Computed example of a mutant assay.
Amino acid sequence: MENTEIKLAEFYENTDKWENRELGADEEFASLASEADDDELMSLLNEPDDENIDSKMQLISIRLPQTLIADLKNIGKAEDLGYQTLAREVLKRFVDAENRKKYNEAVYERERAMADNRRLAEELEAMKKRNAELHANEGNQQCG
């Protein structure tokens, strides 16, 4: 257990070396993962986290400008996050904000429609009252 913790600590201390391929790029250490290893990795990636029980990770490929990646790495260092984790969080915040905006727009439209309905109901009542008054006046004129 302790040996594993030391290896993990060394791994995390050298993340820049892994990312710029100083470490991990030698073909002599590369091998094709077995189907069992692949299944285990996908299982670990797809375990729901505490925050969102339905979350499952999916591997994607995306091309980003190098300057954006460098900025994400710098911000990630300041926030004590990896740049991919930071990018995922940024995307999640954006989607959440867009969903809130759509929800707020829907609520606004519903409230506006309800206000329009109240206004139309008041206008209809006023027209009925005016119509009743006109009929009453016509009845009084015919009698007099």
Score class of each variant (00 low, 15 high):
A126C: 02
A33P: 06
M1K: 12
E40C: 08
N74R: 15
M57K: 08
Y12D: 05
Y83M: 10
L120H: 06
Q66W: 09
F29V: 08
N99D: 09
M42I: 08
N140V: 08
G24H: 14
E138R: 12
K92D: 03
L81Q: 09
R21Y: 15
D49C: 09
D49I: 07
L32T: 14
I69A: 06
E27N: 14
D39I: 06
C143G: 11
I62G: 03
E35F: 08
R88H: 02
K7H: 11
K17Y: 09
N117C: 13
N74M: 13
T15F: 11
W18V: 04
C143A: 15
N99F: 05
M42D: 13
L41N: 01
N52C: 07
N74L: 13
W18L: 10
P65H: 03
D80S: 11
N104E: 10
D16W: 09
N117V: 14
E111F: 05
S31R: 15
A33R: 11
A97W: 06
V107G: 03
H135M: 13
E19M: 07
E10A: 07
A33S: 06
A33V: 07
I53P: 01
A132N: 10
Q58S: 13
E22C: 03
L59I: 14
K7D: 12
F11L: 12
D37V: 04
D54E: 05
N137Q: 15
R93T: 03
I69T: 06
A25P: 07
L23V: 06
E22R: 12
D96V: 00
R130Q: 13
N14G: 01
K128F: 07
A106M: 10
A78T: 04
L64D: 03
A78K: 06
L91W: 02
E105T: 01
K102S: 05
L124E: 10
M114E: 15
G82A: 10
A136K: 15
A9L: 04
L124G: 00
L120P: 02
Y12H: 11
H135K: 11
L81F: 05
E2R: 11
S61Y: 13
E10N: 14
D116P: 00
N117I: 15
E22F: 12
D71M: 10
D39N: 04
V95H: 01
E125P: 05
V107A: 01
W18C: 04
A136E: 14
L64N: 00
S61E: 14
A136M: 12
R63G: 08
T85M: 01
L81K: 12
F11Y: 15
N117G: 09
F29E: 13
S31D: 12
